[in-house]
């Protein structure tokens, strides 16, 4: 099994708050890895270390190693822009820009230097198709993205990430703000995207983790308690805390 992203002895501090403790977790290429755990255990924090979105937070300190294809992404001269192109992120709340649907998807390619109109149209179309949104919006690409429903907006955000051609997709509870039908759509989409993309997804929904992920990692109070094949972890958890959590005894 090929590992694309990997954390080794990763520690993260928000000022005095030790939010991630000695996390070691390889992310296998082309698979879906789910991060689960009770609120505040550090799932989002861990996810954000993988594309350095933590850089935006004041007073954050990272120690340890995160590698992408074997390269240390926290090395001083590492190209963060290039990293975020390769490791895209979808947020919990859909956050399309207040511009047209087309411009939202074209945003990434444009800032990375794509000027050619025809090429942009092709990228937009293939990305929207990739995010299973094309048929719903192809007649109104110039309408404001804010006029879409929540579920459509989230798929638009996925399309927007696909448009820059990433290898890894980080998703932080992408369906928690959505209704069941939209959730189903996004889950189907993840199913379809896996293989071509490596996906790391945070979810509070155990069934969802069970349905869509190949591997699951259980976080608890900043520690990574255990990780492994999703089926194994759910059926025969090694740790008592994991068992309690997945059976709903706390969290």
């Amino acid at each position: 099994m090929e590992t694309i992203l990997s954390a080794e002895k990763l520690n993260l501090y928000y000022s005095d708050n030790h939010a991630l403790k000695d996390i070691t977790l390889p992310v296998p290429k082309g698979q879906v890895t789910a991060l689960i755990g009770p609120s505040g255990c550090g799932k989002s924090t861990f996810l954000k270390t993988l594309n350095r979105m933590n850089d935006l937070v004041d007073g954050v300190r990272v120690a340890g190693l995160v590698t992408l294809d074997g390269e240390d992404i926290y090395a001083p001269d590492y190209d963060v822009v290039g990293l975020r192109k390769r490791v895209g992120m979808v947020f919990q709340k859909p956050n399309p820009f207040p511009m047209s649907i087309f411009d939202n998807v074209a945003y990434g390619p444009r800032i990375h230097g794509q000027r050619d109109k025809k090429a942009l149209r092709e990228i937009v179309e293939s990305s929207l198709k990739g995010a299973a949104l094309w048929d719903e919006v192809k007649d109104r690409l110039n309408k404001s993205a804010l006029s879409l429903s929540g579920g459509q907006q989230q798929r638009l955000c996925i399309a927007r990430v696909l448009a820059v051609g990433p290898e890894v997709l980080l998703m932080d509870e992408p369906t928690s703000a959505l209704d069941p039908i939209s959730t189903q759509r996004i889950e189907d989409l993840i199913e379809e995207l896996k293989g071509r993309y490596t996906i790391v997804i945070v979810t509070h929904n155990m069934q969802q983790a069970g349905r869509i992920s190949d591997r699951t990692a259980f976080f608890y109070r900043g520690d990574l308690i255990e990780w492994g094949e999703t089926d194994t972890l759910f059926q025969t958890p090694a740790d008592k805390r994991t068992e309690d959590y997945i059976t709903g005894r706390f969290g």
Partner: peptide
Amino acid sequence: PRAYKEGSLALGASHSQ
């Protein structure tokens, strides 16, 4: 909204972009 800024940076845009 802060989410716009995060969304843009997460796509690999620089701060000035």
